[in-house]
Design a protein around this nucleic acid. Structure first.
Length: 861
RNA sequence: GCCCGGGUGGCGGAAUUGGUAGACGCGCCGGACUCAAAAUCCGGUGGUAGCGAUACUGUAAGGGUUCGAGUCCCUUCCCGGGUACCA
């Protein structure tokens, strides 16, 4: 049998790689290292979708390529296996989450192996393994020791319908992601990590990272640094001061009222007796608003006067103090000085409640808006008058500091990280409570293992499931012998994924999360590939932990991930849809919101392009042409198992890389898979002919021709450069060009065939190994040296150059390579071209443009 | 609203520092092989006109810089992602 049969060869080589531990990583410190990492997968019950292999193939190509380039490559995989779905399944069925998780991991592992990824399976880690979470707990204790982990009453997302607390990411538009039930905020004792202490470093160190600019920008916005001032406003006839944060201290003279968040600690104290009832009512109203309602009601400002007045320290005027929920308790000081003249929100509020407005920045003559937030000279501002914003700020801050009523100040939007969950399936905190005080479990007593429980439901009042494991909860403090209670919250899923990249380096090491010498060699991660949905949270949290570990001396780099790339989402196949309303097909652009329409899927052959729109063939009816996100409900989900069954893993890998640039969103096309599958068949037949009786090796021992060397080395150049630049789509196109060329040859010289197979191997490793072994090699080609480019072979004997007259191509000339830089020769030849002469007749040449080896342009009048 | 990306054939996408727009693949058209089909192979394929050489036109729209613009600058439109009372 000589035809290409992916099913048998893929299985064969997957077994070979595993049995021979082909991809076991060694740490030979004389060689350069390359750490290429995939984002930690959550092993869900539904298995891999086609999005997974995209990033994984990209990193696998890099890993295989770098090995052949002589690098020690660390390319590991593992499981971010704590998490809600296994727990919800446990609540429903009573199945222990450990069991579900194990099953899912087995399935995921099989699927990844089926795709031929070159992971070092001896380094597999699993966050739910006590040997792993021992170190997650150990890191938590370092945070605790440094005062970076503390307990606090914090509002959590309580879902009465589900009887459980939800994480922020499980709440969508104020409703539970599962079931769509309302979620309310309820204060509970929580563990919180002081990420805000690292805000400045997290912000500054972004600059040197080789990350997508958009991701860095998102992190910057999330951290949300703003520079301004804190100003103290004395409260009239009270012995209190209200401190505000403002980025516009220059507008202080325009502060005509103040607003406190309804939760502000001074509200009760300053509220006058007449206003007490209204204020209480409003506080109640604001507290009950869910996030959803807050969002919906953004248009209308609400608020209540407290009856109290503050003194504006700039001009000693009395200004009223209001409370309103447009001021957020958790940002700045939870209180603002309202400057309606220069702030749109304050303007809106002032208009509604009839509060005075003073402009302190002169708007331009033609300004017609309300609040003016742009730059301009200060007015109505005493000693600031005439100054532009920047100068006015400097001056007022000086004045505030001299008078002891305020100072320059920096504020961050970033908030401390709510780090506990009321769940079973997570890492237990290594904390006991003695006399009501939290106390660290000794390092030697780690891990604190998860206890067994009868069921996984939280208690009725929202206490975590672990509270039910009474024997586990009730313990004694080994130091004092006192009664102690274990912490019953567990850590969020982020915990395990915050440091997993370190554990891969020395998964067996028992002295610390990572072995120090190995860590110095392997860190930082050279290439990190994963979805942009992790742009902020995971990547920020992991950077935070890494910096803490750096401060503890556990790691040697300030940042974990030097280079980051996001793979783009893969959408379903392109769909054409016609709309039917009241039994009639109507144009897509006539469909109005709320219309009751039927969607009718159309076949590609029923559609044609007219102008810039797609229409039903022969009509003017516009149809919709769009690729949608894959979803079960839409029924456009592509299952990688099916693709592998039909075309093989090499075709799936190749297609996912050939679709387009890695970072881009792109639609799936099964026809496209067939295309790359055809390519692999052609490549196979290039070497083995198509005789069905017996196998014919179609390679020769002849010396390659100049032409053959040129074709080969063009491929070497393009493929090497494109892998380095992550342009896998064009690298594959270069491989195709090679095969197209080589197919015209009588036979392929071995010295050309072998390098080509190596070029193919990172992309389609199974077929490459098979061809390689059929060439007579006994060992895997995984560590064969990558083909060297010889520039000499790239040189062409002749060069084609276009000849333009007034910028339009009128002829093409072929010149000997050595003459291509000879201006006189090339121009002479160009002017002789028949079709050029036509355009030169009766004209004068005013300029001759000659770009050596590229183009000739004759400018005539 | 604000901040990032991005608009190139029927489709996915290529195009060094500005230098032949449409590489490669899909689809489509024609041909070979076949009793036939599939597979495979060969040729063609942005649009318009022409038998053809060729000409005009064409990278969301409009304008500009340049010998020359998909690429640089300005204005507008559309699509995708993020974010949203952050003082």
């Amino acid at each position: 049998m000589s035809s290409y049969d992916p099913a048998s060869i893929e299985k064969k080589w997957q077994e070979y790689w595993q049995e021979n531990k082909t991809f076991k990583t060694t740490t030979d410190k004389d060689r350069p290292k390359y750490y290429v990492l995939d984002m930690f997968p959550y092993p869900s019950g539904s298995g891999l979708h086609v999005g997974h292999p995209e990033g994984y193939t990209a990193t696998d190509i890099l890993a295989r390529y770098k090995r052949m380039k002589g690098f020690n490559v660390l390319h590991p995989i593992g499981w971010d296996a704590f998490g809600l779905p296994a727990e919800q399944y446990a609540v429903k069925t009573g199945t222990h989450p450990r069991k579900t998780t194990e099953n899912n991991i087995t399935r995921f592992r099989e699927q990844l192996q089926m795709l031929g990824f070159s992971y070092d399976w001896d380094r597999e880690v699993n966050t739910t393994d006590p040997d792993y979470y021992k170190w997650t707990q150990w890191i938590f204790l370092r945070l605790f020791e440094k005062g970076l982990a503390y307990e606090d009453e914090q509002p959590v997302n309580w879902c009465p319908e589900l009887g459980t607390v939800l994480a922020n990411e499980e709440v969508i538009d104020g409703k539970s992601e599962v079931g769509g039930y309302p979620v309310v905020r309820k204060p509970m004792r929580q563990w919180v990590l002081k990420i805000t202490e690292y805000a400045e470093r997290l912000l500054n160190d972004l600059d040197d990272l080789d990350w997508p600019e958009s991701t860095k920008e998102m992190q910057r916005n999330w951290i949300g640094k703003s520079i301004g001032a804190e100003i103290d406003f004395p409260v009239y006839e009270h012995n209190d001061e209200i401190r505000v944060f403002t980025t516009r201290p220059d507008t202080l003279f325009g502060a005509t009222y103040m607003v406190l968040a309804p939760e502000h600690h001074l509200v009760d104290e300053i509220t006058s007796d007449e206003q007490k009832e209204k204020v209480e009512e409003y506080k109640e109203y604001a507290a009950q608003k869910s996030d959803l309602e807050r969002q919906e009601l953004t248009k209308e400002k609400t608020g209540v006067f407290t009856g109290a007045y503050a003194i504006n320290p700039a001009n000693n005027k009395e200004i009223p103090i209001w409370i309103a929920d447009y001021v957020l308790a958790h940002y700045g000081t939870g209180a603002i000085m309202a400057v309606p003249g220069q702030d749109e929100r304050d303007w809106e509020f002032a208009e509604k409640f009839d509060l005075p407005i003073i402009r302190t920045v002169e708007p331009p003559e033609d300004f017609e808006g309300k609040a003016y937030t742009e730059d301009g000279p200060a007015i109505n501002s005493d000693f600031l008058n005439g100054l532009k914003i920047t100068d006015a700020k400097t001056k007022i801050i000086e004045w505030l500091e001299e008078n002891g009523v305020g100072k320059k100040s920096v504020n961050y939007k970033l908030r401390d990280w709510l780090f506990s969950r009321q769940r079973y399936w997570g890492e237990p905190f290594p904390i006991i409570h003695v006399d009501g005080e939290p106390k660290a479990v000794a390092d030697d007593d780690l891990p604190v293992e998860l206890p067994e429980v009868d069921n996984y439901q939280p208690t009725k009042d929202g206490e975590p499931p672990l509270a039910k494991a009474e024997h586990w909860v009730e313990t004694t403090d080994p130091e004092t012998g006192k009664k102690a209670l274990r912490e019953t919250n567990t850590m969020p899923q982020w915990a395990g994924s915050c440091w997993y990249y370190l554990r891969y380096i020395s998964p067996e090491f028992d002295g610390a999360p990572v072995e120090p010498e190995e860590e110095k060699y392997w860190m930082p991660v050279d290439m990190y590939v994963g979805g942009s949905e992790h742009s902020v949270l995971h990547l920020l949290y992991a950077r935070f932990w890494h910096k803490v570990l750096y401060d503890c001396g556990v790691v040697s780099t300030e940042e974990p991930f030097q280079r980051l790339v996001h793979q783009g989402m893969i959408l379903g196949e392109l769909e054409y849809t016609a709309y039917e309303k009241d039994g009639k097909i109507i144009s897509a652009d006539e469909v109005e919101e709320g219309d009751d329409v039927n969607r009718k899927p159309l076949d590609e052959s029923d559609v044609e392009k007219k102008g810039d729109r797609h229409v039903m063939k022969g009509t003017e009816i516009t149809v919709n042409s769009k690729a949608h996100k894959m979803s079960k409900s839409r029924g456009n989900v592509i299952n990688p198992d099916d693709v592998v069954d039909n075309y093989g893993a090499d075709s799936l890998r190749l297609y996912e890389m050939f679709m387009g640039p890695l970072e881009q969103v792109k639609p799936w096309s099964t026809k496209g898979v067939e295309g790359v599958n055809r390519f692999l068949n052609r490549a196979w037949r290039l070497f083995f002919g198509d005789n069905h009786e017996e196998e014919i090796l179609n390679i020769t021992d002849e010396e390659p021709s100049k032409e053959q060397l040129k074709v080969l080395h063009e491929a070497i150049q393009k493929v090497s450069e494109d892998i380095e630049g992550l342009r896998f789509n064009t690298a594959i196109s270069a491989l195709m060009i090679f095969v197209n060329e080589a197919n015209q040859w009588e036979g392929v010289p071995r010295s050309v065939a072998e390098p080509f197979v190596k070029l193919l191997s990172p992309f389609a490793p199974h077929i490459a190994e098979e061809i390689w072994s059929k060439f007579g090699h006994d060992e895997s080609l995984a560590y064969e040296p990558w083909p060297e480019l010889v520039e000499e072979y790239l040189k062409a004997e002749t060069i084609d150059m276009p000849v333009q007259v007034n910028g339009k191509v009128r002829a093409n000339i072929t010149v000997p390579a050595e003459k291509s830089k000879d201006k006189d020769f090339v121009l002479g030849l160009a002017k002789q071209q028949e079709n050029v002469e036509r355009y030169l007749d009766d004209t004068t040449i005013v300029k001759e443009i000659f770009v050596p080896g590229r183009i000739v342009n004759l400018v005539v009048k």
